[in-house]
Design a protein around this nucleic acid. Sequence first.
DNA 1: GTGCTGACTGCAG
DNA 2: ACTGCAGCCAGCA
Length: 112
Amino acid sequence: MAEQQYKFFEDVWEVVRLIPRGRVTSYGAIARYLGTAKSSRMVGYAMNAAHALPDVPAHRVVNRAGVLTGKQHFSTLTRMQELLEQEGVKVREDQIIHFEKHFWDPMLELRL
DNA sequence: GTGCTGACTGCAG
DNA sequence: ACTGCAGCCAGCA
């Protein structure tokens, strides 16, 4: 069914929506949670598509190093950083300070 | 229909 | 410790 083919994207968006304010996660963590650990790139791709949706905080999703690799896809290059700092997440040189401290793993938070 | 690209990651050298 | 490469899969030329 065509609907199930897009389920992956929908699941990604759903997980991203569940990210608490002031927390961040990685593409790989989401991919792993969905059972497609090796398709982390698709998560990023899903984010690109999610850009049109209102309730998907794509700025809370970064790569595993805590770098704002997707900032170029926002309206402005500083938009992503602004949104994060607005939530109390400090960013320096396109990288999240104390990334591990702000890290939110859906595997741990949702799976239990 | 074929091939390249990409908001990534993990392993090998 | 740093750098390079292969794997994954959807979208576009």
